[in-house]
Every structure is written in structure tokens, then in C-alpha cells.
Design a protein around this nucleic acid. Structure first.
Lengths: 206, 206, 206, 206
DNA sequence: TCCTAAGCGAGACGGTACGTCCGGTCTTTGC
DNA sequence: GCAAAGACCGGACGTACCGTCTCGCTTAGGA
């Protein structure tokens, strides 16, 4: 499994969209921005989404609250940007391509389960689901990170090309079902039997 | 699809667990209890989980805050009980059994998608996911309501018996994948193409 | 000069105006009320009116901000009540009555000037004028405390009866002019020459 | 009563005190300065002293905040300069000299009371007292404007010369008492009976 | 018939966090 | 080098709820 580079989706340049600078005033402080994102990631990991507070972030980042409100409209926007930066979880779980689809999917699931099962990540992951439920962007980015968006589908498509999957297999549905399984699994807080990835692959890729 | 009776999981009797009565004092007020649950359901539907407040519920139910804290330990416990009572969504989506598994699953999915897609339910459903992420009980009850717990598995098992599914099909995994798909779908806030249930059944029940 | 008892204008009894108690809820906490007033008086004396903050008072009194907002609508209402309680300055400067009006007024002025000239009081007194400019109650109570309201007029009236002042002397105007002089004097931050009370009495009581 | 010319105390020339010009750079912008003073006067009249904000003034004057901070050290310095310019109230109330002191004083008081009683001025005047309590300059200028400083004393002195007042009358004390009366009167927010000026003159000029 | 214990409404209380406003400083750009 | 624009840290504002606590009823056994 290969993680795409954190920050590769970055979208902040310090300039106006057209590349010019505004008439007057200081430019946005990159230092403050990074401190805020780092504080958000740290406090999210420690306390979870609902105990995450703007005041706490501002204090941790040694920043005025207004500086947060100036650039992010809400707690969830802040979390969404952290997610994009890859500070909360690997920016994307991408299945490898060894040529054998079943093996690659199994390995991908093993990593995914390992991630969501690890105690340190588990409650944070669930918190992310809560955040996703409140904020569409977070939902989309989270789905993307877990692979449902495109990386997983691309791998499945290569499986079709290799004849390991029927040509008419509904790839997006398969991908969403896989990711959905992982989410339900994480919400259930049940452990992962070692053969689960195997069985799951068998169930969906007969 | 048949909905199980709301309240069939009810667990309140007005007496102590052993059937006796305490020495003195008033019994728990059934009227208050119902008013609280009704207020919770109404406010949850209107405002969602995170804007649901104990004070708001108490005011809406014309009840003292302490009466809520006396019987429920937290906001999420209250929501869990509402969910059990079926005040938030049908207490369970149960696939029918016409003998044709594919048809029954498709119809079950049609109803499920119809429910989560309807604007009035959509944000409330997502709020339930948020609540589930914070509270294990809600997660379990929600999963059960959506069918993953047992009703769906039972239907699948009868499909195996009828030879419509391989004898070694991993039923729990299939069930969780189906429910997971619905959850991801709801989080994505995307509409449902009419043929989606059909395609999904085809994808998972080849 | 005799000071009337601090608190003699007190107006809080812990009961409803009709002597009954409200239907439900705890009674107002006397301890919190006193702590708040004491904190206000202390911080006012130290920092002056404009640097007096509700948050500071709440912290000093170890009280929630809401407890202050529940009972007082504004910073100035709080200061007005402190003034009434006599925590900010003697609740009233009352001229003595030795039979000699000129002597009594002079002594009264000596004490008044001594009070407003003392460094510790001077800026607090000016702050009170600022507060009086914003809040009618404070203005009225302050005027009363300085004697203009009635105590001074009563003393002047006895002077009329003793033939030390013309029967048609406009007593309220004289009283207000005297108090007004003291206020302008305090605003000017100039010291008081020893013979000023004497000259002032001579100027107004010819 | 004659008003001295607004701006007659003006003290800004756009040049250094010695008449030279600084070495390089732009000169102070007269347009900005006037816009700031005008904005201050307008907002002061509308909102009063304590709701007057530097940011509000800057916005109203379409000026950067720094331009204000560069030239005035505080809100009260700004108000003091407005007062000097006569933008807040007539720069000085000066008693006329018809030869009859009692008449002139009465007329002067009539105008003063009329000014202070008018609703549009009343709260602004009180705000000025608040400002005076915080800032010595404002207190001095305000006292001067109201006449206590010198114009009133000069008129009284001519009364002495005309034999309408005893040669040993303590003029400064009388002047301050008169102005003090007006201030207490304004703080009390009570109306002015028509014969008040008459009675007041009678009380202080027997 | 009292006594007594609990349930209940009401709401005060000490707190925490909210989102906004403003103070005073600093930085950037343009004239 | 002044001025506009405005970002920045800090701190107070007044509000909303939290969860706990006390009140003064009411209610319903057991004595």
C-alpha cells in the first residue's frame, strides 16, 4: 500500500486566487496557519471531535481566536483541512498493484483494519465519522482517504482488465460496499479476526 | 418489508427490576418519561444531534432538568432510548420473504434508500451516525435497525437454504457490507439512481 | 460630621416583595451577592470604573458570570448598588449641627475636600463621576451621598430657623452649588488651599 | 451671550512648531485629520463617549487605524481636540456685558440650561463629563468652555468694578459654584423650571 | 392518620465555550 | 515617509448549556 503525499492536495498559496496581492495589509501568516492546523490535529487526536474547542485550539496554537474565525468558518472546516493535509490519518489508503487483485485487496484491508483497530486511532476515527455526519466536505474527504473515491476503483478496474473480475462488475458499488464495511466495523468497536480480510474479499469478489 | 412494532423492545415497567416497590415516595412518572422522549425525538428531528440540548428537551417537555438526569445518564442515552422506541426511525427495516432473495433484497434496499434520501430524514439520519460514533449503544441499535444485526442475516440464510446463495457465503460480512454501503451513501448526500438497488444486489449476490 | 449607617438603604431581603417565596428553585445566594459587591468595590477602587470588568469581578468573587448578569443588568447597576451599600465611599456626608451654621458647613467641606483630595480616593471619585454620567441611579445616589439630596438642605434649613440665613434663601440651589463646586474641584485635580472651605462658605453664605 | 469663534484655539498648521518642514516624506494629511475629527464628533454625538471606538472612527473617516494612533495617543485626546475645535459644543459660553450683571448672568444661565436640557445635547454632555472624569485635559477644556475658566470671572470682575458685587467677593469660587451647579443639574437629568436662573443668580449674588 | 421518603417543577449556581467586538501593534503596498 | 488596508494577539463582551444543587410541593406506601 502506498500513501499519497500529505499536502499534495494543498490549496493555500498566500496569494489571491489570481496570483496578485491585495492592495494593503499584511499577508496571511503561514506560521499561524500551520500552528492552528497542528494544534487542531493534536487536540482532535487527544480529545475527539466533540471535545475539540476553538478556544483550546487558539490557546494551544498561541493564536487569537479571531485568526481562526477569519479563515475557517467552523470547527468542521478546520478538521476538514487537517484531514486534507493528512495530519489526522494517512491522506489516502491506496491499494498496491502486484497483479493479483485478491492479494492486493486483502493487504489493503489488513492495513485499513489495523489502522482503525489500533486503540490510539479508533476513537479518533469514530470522531471523524461524527464530523463527517455534520459536514459534507469531511464526509467526502474521508471517503476519498479510505479509498472509495478513486484509488480503490482504479485498482478494481485493473483487476477487470486482468480478467480477475467480470467485465460488468459494478466497481463503484463494490468500492463503497468495502469502505462501508470498514466504517460499520469501526463503529461496532469489535476486533478484527485475522481471517476477516480474506473472508471479506471472498465475499465480494467471488 | 415488514416493520417490527415500535416499542416492542420496550423495557420500562414502572417497578423495580425485582417487581417490588420501593418503601415510600412517588413512583416514576410515566407522563414525564413519555414527554421527555417525545420532546427528544421532536427536537432531534428538527435540530440534529449536536444542537440537541438537555435544557431544550426539559423546556419542551415541561419537565425539570433533574428529572432527565435522574433517569438518563447522557444525551446519547436518551437518543438511544428514542431509537429503541422507534420514534426516530422505524424500529427495524426487515426484508420480506417472498421466496426470491434478489427481489426481496432489492425491495428492502429501495425502502432503505427512500428513507435516507428523503430530505426530512436525511440530516437526521446523518445525525444518528454522529451519535453512533460517540455512543456504542446507539451504534449497535442503529445497526440492528438497519437490518445488519439479525433480520437481514436471517433472510440471507433462508436464501442459502433455498439455494439462491452458496452454502459457504459469508452472510454476516455480506450484511455488514450492504448496511455499510447505505451509510456511506447517506454520508455522501448523493441521490439514488433508480437502478442502484438492482446493481447493488447484482454486485453482492452474483 | 456624622455618617449614616452603610446599608441603611439596603433593599434586599431574600424574599419576594410580598414576603412569600417563589414556587420552585433555590433562593438567591446571599453569599454570592455579597462576594460580588465586595469584589466590585475592591476592583473599582483599584482600577477605576472603565477598567472594571464583569469577568474580573466574577473571578475575584469566585462566581459564574451568569450569576452577575442574572441580578444586575449592567456594570453601572452593580456600581450603583455598591454605592448604596457604602462600600465605595461613606454612604453619606452629613453636616453636624453645633448651632453655628458657618462652622458646621466649613467642617463639612473640610471633610469632603479631604476625602476627594486623598490620592487613594481621588481617581475613584472621578470614576464615580464618569459612572454617574452614564447611569442616572448612580448620579442620584452620588448626589445624595455628597449631601446635596437632603441632609445638607436640612442643615441649611435649621440655619434659616436660627436666623443665620435669610428666610427666602434658595436652599436647594445653595446645596447643589456647594456640591457642584466640590465636583468641579475634584475634576480639576487641583489641591485644596487650607482656607478654601472658609472662603467658599463666605462666598455662598454672605 | 457671545460665542467665541470655533477653532479660534486651533493649533495645527501642517508645519513643525518652528515653521519649518520636515526633511522628507509626505506632510500630515489635513484631509485625514479633519475627517477623523468630524467622524469623532459625529459618533460621539450619536453614541456617547463609552461606545465611541477607534475602529468606528477609522471606518467612518475612511482612514487607517494607525493614522489615528500616530497623531493621538488615546480616545480621550481625540475628544479633547474635538472639544477645542468646538465640534461638540459651542467652544465657549461667554456672558454678555450689558452693564447689568444680574441680567447678564441670568441670560447666560438661560442659554446654558437650554443647551444642557435639549435632548440631543443632554446625553452627549453627560458623556463629556464622563470623559472629563477620565482625562484631565478634557476636564480643563470643558470647564473653560462652560465659562468657569476666565470669561465668567472677567464678567464678574467687571461687576465688582461696577459696584454690583462686593470688592472682596471670591470670584473664582463663585464661578466654579455656578458651573458646578450646572453640572450637577445635568447629571440629575431634571428639567429646568423657568425661574431657576433667576433664583440661582439671587442665591449666589445677594 | 400521620410519617417519611422519593419524584418532581423550578431555577440558582460555578463553570466552559461560544462567536463578536475592539484595543493597540505590526506589516505590506502604493502614492 | 505618510497613509490605506488589514492581519495579528489579546482580552472582554453577553449568551447558551452543562451538570449539580437546593428549594417547596406532591404522592404514596408503612407505621
Amino acid at each position: 500500500m502506498v500513501l499519497s503525499q500529505p499536502g499534495s492536495l494543498g490549496h493555500w498559496s498566500g496569494s489571491e486566487p489570481d496570483g496578485s496581492r491585495r492592495r494593503g495589509g499584511s499577508a496571511r501568516s503561514q506560521a499561524s496557519r500551520l500552528a492552528i492546523l497542528a494544534a487542531t490535529a493534536r487536540l482532535f487526536a487527544v480529545n475527539g471531535y466533540d471535545r475539540l474547542t476553538i478556544e483550546g485550539i487558539a490557546a494551544e496554537a498561541r493564536v487569537g481566536k479571531q485568526t481562526i474565525y477569519r479563515w475557517w468558518g467552523s470547527k468542521s472546516a478546520l478538521v476538514a483541512e487537517c484531514l486534507l493535509e493528512g495530519s489526522l490519518m494517512p491522506a489516502a489508503f491506496v491499494p498496491a498493484d502486484t497483479g493479483d487483485l485478491a492479494v492486493d485487496l486483502r493487504e489493503w484491508l489488513v492495513e485499513l483494519f489495523a489502522f482503525v483497530d489500533e486503540a490510539a486511532n479508533a476513537s479518533m476515527t469514530r470522531s471523524l465519522f461524527a464530523a463527517a455526519a455534520e459536514n459534507e466536505d469531511i464526509g467526502r474527504i474521508l471517503g476519498e482517504s479510505l479509498g472509495a473515491g478513486s484509488a480503490l476503483i482504479r485498482r478494481l478496474r485493473r483487476g477487470v482488465e486482468a480478467g480477475q473480475l467480470g467485465v460488468d462488475a459494478p466497481l463503484p458499488e463494490l468500492a463503497k460496499a468495502l469502505v462501508g464495511y470498514v466504517i460499520v466495523h469501526a463503529l461496532e468497536r469489535a476486533g478484527t479476526p485475522p481471517d476477516l480480510p480474506e473472508r471479506l474479499v471472498a465475499a465480494l469478489l467471488p
